[in-house]
């Protein structure tokens, strides 16, 4: 997939645990784990907004588009 999720990088930069982020955002730790590994179909704007708010970052810091060679 050409969208890379850099949530684990941001969590490490901010020194925040997945459990704390899950609590702040209001989703399960399992879902945070799935999000970090990129094994999700999509992310709601509300979730993205809550993550950005808690980690004090931009959506671009979490999601990255990488061009795939054909």
């Amino acid at each position: 997939m050409s969208i890379i999720v850099n949530l684990d990088v941001m969590l490490a930069r901010r020194k925040v645990k997945s459990k704390d982020l899950a609590q702040a955002v209001g989703i399960t730790v399992q879902n945070i784990s799935l999000l970090k590994s990129g094994k999700v179909k999509g992310i709601r704007f509300a979730t993205l907004e809550a993550i950005c708010k808690y980690l004090d970052c931009e959506p671009g810091d979490i999601l990255e588009y990488v061009k795939e060679d054909k």
Binding site: I27, T28, Q30, V40, K41, R44
Partner: peptide, 10 residues
């Protein structure tokens, strides 16, 4: 609820 949440969109 958790299963359906996991299966679709977060």
């Amino acid at each position: 609820n958790i299963a359906s949440e996991n299966a679709q969109i977060i």
